[in-house]
Amino acid sequence: MARPTTVPQARALRRRASETERMLWKLLRDRKLEGLKFRRQFPLGPYVLDFVCLRHRLVIEADGPFHDPTQDAVRDAWLAAEGFRVLRFPNTEIQLRDWQVIGRILEVVGAPPPQP
């Protein structure tokens, strides 16, 4: 369940998404990826997740230049305790090798890889 303070924060983050987050959202939205339903800037507990597929309990994080590895580890541990898997991708990988990002997501959810 989301905390009351994370809902307005999630709405604000949706409005001011980074270019990389918008690029990734284009690939994930509207069940384009093997019919998987993703949500963006989803409030969960004390956190706002970049992208989440609730059916597969999979969190996708786009890591920009301001991510703190120590805080990320705490967050990832909390999410793991809640039964979520977390995939983190650096912005440069999303921007330059989006097919590898998609391949890794599909690998994790057990879906067949996309046909070239």
Rank of each mutant, 00 (worst) to 15 (best):
E21N: 00
V86W: 08
N91Y: 06
Q9S: 01
H56D: 15
P4A: 14
V52R: 04
L33G: 03
A81Q: 14
L49Q: 07
V108C: 11
W99F: 10
F84W: 09
R104H: 02
P46I: 03
F51N: 09
L58N: 08
R88G: 07
L96C: 09
P43F: 01
L58M: 11
T92E: 14
R85L: 13
A2T: 04
R14M: 07
E21T: 01
Q95V: 15
G64A: 02
D98Y: 03
E82M: 14
P116R: 14
P69E: 08
V7S: 02
R39G: 10
E19N: 01
L106P: 05
M1G: 13
R88A: 02
S18C: 04
L96N: 10
R75G: 02
Q71V: 14
D30W: 06
L27P: 00
L96P: 00
T70I: 15
G45S: 10
E19H: 02
A17D: 06
P112Y: 03
E82F: 06
T5V: 06
M1L: 11
P90R: 13
I105H: 01
I60E: 06
V52Q: 04
A111P: 01
G64C: 07
G83Y: 12
E19A: 10
I105K: 02
T20I: 11
L28A: 09
V86E: 08
N91D: 13
R75F: 09
I94E: 04
L87R: 03
T20V: 13
D63E: 13
P69G: 10
L54C: 04
D50Y: 02
Q9W: 03
L49M: 05
D63P: 06
K37N: 10
D68I: 11
R3C: 07
Y47L: 06
A81W: 02
D68G: 00
A62Y: 10
A17W: 05
P4C: 09
R31S: 13
V86H: 08
H67L: 09
P114Y: 03
W78T: 11
K32I: 01
I102S: 04
E107C: 06
D50F: 05
P69Y: 04
D68M: 13
G83D: 14
P90V: 15
E21F: 06
Q71L: 15
L49G: 02
L87T: 04
L13M: 12
K32T: 05
P90W: 09
L96I: 07
L13Y: 03
R40E: 12
T6F: 03
E107S: 11
L58Y: 03
P69L: 09
T5L: 10
A12Q: 13
A80F: 05
L24T: 03
Q95R: 14
A2E: 07
